[in-house]
């Protein structure tokens, strides 16, 4: 092998600031998409377990529709498919104001919301039906029973699979480079273009993703311990 490693490309020139920008964009798009995904996941996951059938159908439709179409297609949908529905002036405005980022964020959030929904539904189904009955038997409405009892318990049960899903979301944020979002993978490619040092650039990218994932997993583990339901044995605890 005759590859000349030159790790200094990662901190010489603009590489360092590009990587930093890439990390920031990746974290921004992932964080916003995560909030959206969590909100959609909780609402649709809960809808899929309520007694009222039409609401269940709405939840199921959302999940099946969004989960079964590849993320890349959703990126293109939000970026290429949605703007033409707007008036021309509005289109120009959003194209000048980060349409790429917002389209990527929506695609990521809505897609992972559908996947999060499955996780949350599984969490709710793991709660005995009688918990819900006990809640409504006290006079809580179905909505209150979900908001105050069922969802809070479910969220505590699903921290490990939700962590997994969150990490998937972070990793999938790189798909946004297909619509010109300059996130981390985009920036590592850029360094490769400038320096022709593909191995160094991709290694740096890989390591940064690894660090972000390990960091998030650590935070989620703390969350899990902090909110653990007394009496339920925490994993590994």
């Amino acid at each position: 092998m005759n590859y000349q490693f030159k790790w200094s490309v990662l901190w010489s020139g603009q590489s360092g600031s590009w990587l930093l920008q890439g990390v920031i964009t990746t974290l921004e798009i992932s964080a916003l998409a995560w909030v959206l995904a969590a909100a959609l996941g909780i609402v649709s996951g809960a809808l899929r377990t309520v007694p009222f059938r039409p609401l269940r159908a709405v939840g199921t439709f959302y999940v099946e529709f969004f989960r079964n179409v590849p993320l890349l297609v959703w990126m293109f949908f939000w970026y290429f498919g949605v703007p033409p529905l707007l008036p021309r002036a509005a289109q120009d405005w959003i194209f000048n104001h980060g349409a790429e980022f917002w389209a990527g964020m929506f695609a990521l959030g809505v897609y992972h919301g559908a996947r999060m929904s499955e996780v949350i539904r599984a969490g709710i189904l793991a709660i005995p039906r009688t918990q819900f009955e006990a809640a409504v038997a006290m006079g809580l409405t179905t909505f209150q029973a979900y908001r105050l009892v069922i969802v809070p318990i479910a969220l505590r049960l699903i921290v490990p699979p939700a962590t997994n899903e969150s990490l998937n979301l972070l990793k999938n944020s790189s798909v946004a480079l297909t619509i010109s979002v300059a996130e981390l993978t985009f920036q590592t490619r850029q360094i490769e273009t400038y320096t022709a040092k593909a191995v160094e650039a991709l290694t740096a990218g890989t390591l940064i993703y690894l660090i972000l994932c390990v960091g998030i997993a650590a935070v989620m583990a703390r969350v899990e311990r902090r909110f653990a339901i007394p009496g339920l044995i925490a994993r590994g605890g």
Binding site: A134, V136, M138, P152, I153, L232
Partner: peptide, 21 residues
């Protein structure tokens, strides 16, 4: 209104059903 009715009728279950959190 079921919720209104249920505020006036208390129920105790075999499996206690306290909210664990």
């Amino acid at each position: 209104s079921m919720s209104a009715l249920r505020t006036r009728v208390g129920m105790v279950f075999q499996s206690f059903n306290l909210f664990p959190h």
